[in-house]
């Protein structure tokens, strides 16, 4: 064993920090615009689109990120017996989708806080819907959502620690298929996939109840506008 010095500890931590920063940066760069797409999707006038997107956001917001990482990293291996992408890709997809959904809800709140008069003013000045959004509304939305976005982004930094779970749970990998042989399927379906889904359902139920509660409070407070 090499000697553990302050320097070596610092270097190890810095190495870890690099991973953290990478996940952080990639997630932000991808989830910030993707969140806007999700916002537009859930506000779509085409009912099936908005329904599917809202449902998706509800599931993502209603289950733990940890579970989503596990499903994306190990899911394909367990279900199809082979992995289509690197573990790190699965982790990144999970982070990006998760944060895009949270961001989309923040955007929605920000967009709804802009007074109708701003849209109407743009409209009567002959602007297109896109121009009204990007030239008039967007910057005002940005100003409104900075505090909640700050919260969410700080949470993201801390959530990167969840990535450790992928390393710790290596035993779930497909490489064990050979060792386990026929029983691999039995183990994966009964001991892993169903428990994952079932625990997910519990979280979803709990969060679903909270979502309804907050929706109710939001509606209750809708009787006045500022």
């Amino acid at each position: 064993m090499g000697s553990v010095s302050f320097l070596s500890v610092t270097l190890t931590l810095l190495e870890g920090f690099l991973t953290t920063f990478l996940i952080f940066a990639v997630t932000l760069v991808a989830a910030i615009p993707l969140g806007l797409v999700v916002t537009f999707g859930s506000a779509s006038k085409i009912k099936p689109i908005s329904l599917v997107v809202r449902c998706f956001v509800w599931v993502i917001r209603g289950t733990p990120l940890l579970l989503q990482i596990l499903v994306l990293v190990y899911g394909p291996g367990l279900v199809f017996g082979q992995q289509f992408y690197e573990n790190s890709v699965g982790v990144m997809i999970a982070f990006i989708i998760n944060y895009a959904c949270y961001f989309s809800e923040i955007y929605r709140g920000g967009i709804e806080s802009i007074s109708r008069g701003q849209y109407e003013a743009g409209h009567v000045l002959g602007m297109t819907k896109g121009q009204v959004f990007f030239k008039v509304v967007l910057l005002q939305v940005v100003k409104h959502i900075i505090p909640p976005m700050g919260n969410e982004i700080i949470t993201l930094v801390k959530d990167t620690s969840l990535v450790r779970i992928v390393g710790a749970l290596m035993f779930l990998g497909t490489q064990h298929k050979e060792i386990l042989g026929k029983s691999f399927e039995y183990v994966s379906v009964n001991a892993l996939i169903w428990p994952l889904f079932y625990s997910g359902a519990f979280y979803l139920l709990f969060c679903g109840a909270l979502t309804l509660l907050f929706g109710y409070i939001e509606k209750k407070l809708d009787y006045y506008k500022n």
């Binding site: 008069g117 701003q118 002959g126």
Partner: peptide, 18 residues
């Protein structure tokens, strides 16, 4: 949009872009 540009509108509460 082209047709509505025949008209201009000044709102009661201004609605300037802040």
């Amino acid at each position: 949009r082209n047709r509505q540009l025949n008209f201009g509108l000044v709102f009661q509460n201004f609605n300037l872009f802040p």
